[in-house]
Write a protein that binds this DNA or RNA. Sequence first.
DNA 1: CTGTTACTTCAGAAAATTCTGAAAATCCAG
DNA 2: CTGGATTTTCAGAATTTTCTGAAGTAACAG
Lengths: 198, 198
Amino acid sequence: MNLPPLIQAFVLHFGEMGSRWGINRTVGQVYAVIFLANRPVCADDLVDAVGVARSNVAMALKELQSWELIRLKHVPGERRDYYGTLDDIWAIVRKLVEQRKRREIDPTLTVLRELLMQSPASEEERFAQERMQEMHGVIELLTGWYDDIERLETERLVQLLSLGSKIVKALEWKDKLFVAKGGRGKPKAPGDGTAERP
Amino acid sequence: MNLPPLIQAFVLHFGEMGSRWGINRTVGQVYAVIFLANRPVCADDLVDAVGVARSNVAMALKELQSWELIRLKHVPGERRDYYGTLDDIWAIVRKLVEQRKRREIDPTLTVLRELLMQSPASEEERFAQERMQEMHGVIELLTGWYDDIERLETERLVQLLSLGSKIVKALEWKDKLFVAKGGRGKPKAPGDGTAERP
DNA sequence: CTGTTACTTCAGAAAATTCTGAAAATCCAG
DNA sequence: CTGGATTTTCAGAATTTTCTGAAGTAACAG
């Protein structure tokens, strides 16, 4: 590995975090190098920078492309493939959330829907299904919120995030009005996951 | 493994998802069994339910306790340790988010802060530090929002989530007022991660 | 064509993680 | 104390994941 100290420290950290983030060390390090680079980066640069086999770099690049976190960027007059991250940091955040939702949440939502269709064959199963219903309810609420928010322009999104819970003031002022109009979804419908456990 | 079909399907799914969620199969399955159970569950029940070695169940329970996702629940007149999940599904969601933030984000925030203290020794490092600054900015904004929101009562939280992007209407109405008062943070300050990449 | 450069694939090696069974420690009842 | 029930620990086995080097494929310049 052959990088300036500041960059190397960041790259090593991304490598260590990789396993917690559901990617492996090489993928983490490769992404870090591309993220910090002020120009597109090719496979040879990466072999040099992270010090692993070329084939391993190829795998990491494939993985990062499957996440849509890096993009091919052709450099004029170069035969090799160069890669860069998404341009804007918010585009990166959006993509990360989108992909993790797709990989970590959507499959469970599908399974829950299937299992909630079936009829319980015992009291044990009936109770279990109730719990699944609760889980389904919160996931629907959270992903529904995400689907809604994700469409906002970045400027609006940043505005919203900056407000934090101050937004609740608005809710308090407009409480009855909003509730009367009905928000997205039916938060008080039975079995929507908002009920307390007995 | 010895469970009713509906429950077994859910438990197997949790096992498969385990690796994507950063826990292992046994931990996933053990949690699923406890989550669906109608009553506190002991180690023997789990050995029976998921069909792995007792020591493996003990490890899984320790792991789940370190996540604070399960709790010891003493059953009167029983010597063995019984476990249950947090009572309310929203408490579970909150705990999950809290723990994943702690494990997946906080360490990076610490490293970023350290590296941003240092002086870049080259143009390459200067640019890299700019990127780290962008990353630091978005993480601060997102975690700041989380710290704020996380304190809301569940009822308010559900209300907020149900509204989704309808809340932006409120922003639009009150736009200048809120901005004048100043939201949490300084979304337009330079180097806060909201700038576009050149 | 032919030789060079670059990317991809893949079988097996290496490393990391998970799992087990046995032994040790703990806890309580009598 | 003593004995049984229960939990914890841990070394090594089993499994899974990651990584490498070599071979294969593709693209292109001359």
